[in-house]
Design a binder for these strands. Structure first.
Lengths: 213, 213
DNA sequence: TGAGACCCCCTACCTTAGTCGAATATTCAT
DNA sequence: ATGAATATTCGACTAAGGTAGGGGGTCTCA
């Protein structure tokens, strides 16, 4: 199977799809490409051709629901390497993508040469477990250490309530709320209420950015 | 001004950027193109060439924070038409983009011919105010009253910076930042920094849920 | 019965956030 | 150019956020 590679390119943007195909076509001469614009199409394509060599998968595709789609593809076709192509630069997303079994992660801002190189490496079996990746300190992990009461406080913080209002709603003193907030900030590894709220809301919505500094 | 159009193409993906430029280059022969990969670069380019005919702006670019970046560009260069090029399909985003002064909205899945046609229409002044059925006091409407400096402050607030850091980054005193924050809170109709950040981030991520447990 | 974890409450103190009034630039229409 | 309106800036003051340390109550597990 030297020069008959079979790729599945799953991305809902025709521009991106064509660019990826043309880039890979120059490196992998004679390769076969299948297109998919939705998760359903990608699944159907894999069902038809289970011997696909690699999938280039966009995370922001209809039906994906973030990383959920990746997990579903993996569970039904565990042997096919999946290469994530995404615009998200967020470290958490990358890490979780690996946790869900992605073989590589390509930023959309990468050059076409880089992309081809990564794909080649995956086909050669070079990239599997990323160097560090696993078991880092994700926000979700840190947040799991909160006690029930601290979760309630955080939930109200996220709604924009201030300590006095939180104290009233929970039926405790404001000093108590402050104590909880202090612990929450420490457990989350942030330095202000605003940062805690930003990260907590980012948990629900796998949005574009996070940034610390 | 027949054949000397000046475009600013702001997108962090080289692939998309090149595709846009080559598409427009065939229709607008002899046009000048400036590239930008970040919001800061786009702003610098507009500062250098305020007579740019149109900006093609990607919403998912570093430093944009969703629609925040659009609002900042508009507030500093109100006369330059901005054409949004985005992958987001949500209707809410499109509408708010218009509320913030975008001249047109192009989905990335549009064909290159469509794109060129829309750009042509904008240059001809055909597309300006979309059926500006603004009505109710949306957050976007309130936010549009912010001055350029206030936008800069808000953008840093949204990243979790505190007043001291904002002051340093903008090269002003902390007291000044506090004064700006006060005005921002009043214009936005909120009572605390946290609430302002929550609403401003809702601009970027129009997600439905909030995950409570 | 003790050790440990969670929760609640408090005082005292420091840091950050936010308000008010006012002075100095900048913009803009006339 | 000139006066009005607004932006930007700042210092001083008040309010809220956050920390350190202590005390006490409940529950669980060994």
């Amino acid at each position: 199977m030297a020069d008959t590679e079979r790729f599945l390119v799953a991305d809902d943007h025709p521009m991106v799809r064509d660019a990826l195909v043309s880039a890979l076509g120059q490196v992998f001469v004679g390769a076969q490409f299948t297109m998919a614009g939705t998760l359903a199409q990608a699944q159907a394509a894999l069902d038809r051709q289970p011997d696909t060599d690699a999938v280039l998968l966009d995370l922001d595709m209809p039906g994906m629901d973030g990383l959920t789609g990746l997990a579903r593809l993996r569970s039904e076709h565990p042997t096919v390497p999946i290469i994530i192509v995404s615009a998200a630069r967020e470290a958490g997303v990358v890490q979780r993508a690996y946790e869900f079994g992605a073989s590589a992660y390509i930023d959309k801002s990468a050059s076409l040469e880089e992309i081809a190189g990564i794909v080649r490496a995956v086909l050669d079996g070079e990239i599997f477990a990323p160097p560090d990746a696993v078991a880092g300190d994700s926000f979700a992990q840190r947040a799991a250490q909160l006690t029930p009461q601290q979760w309630r406080v955080l939930a109200l913080m996220v709604q924009g309530d201030q300590n006095k209002q939180i104290a009233h709603k929970l039926g405790v003193g404001e000093a108590t709320v402050k104590a909880h907030v202090t612990v929450i900030l420490r457990k989350l590894g942030v330095r202000s209420r605003t940062q805690a709220v930003i990260e907590a809301r980012g948990l629900a919505l796998p949005g574009p950015e996070t940034l610390r500094q």
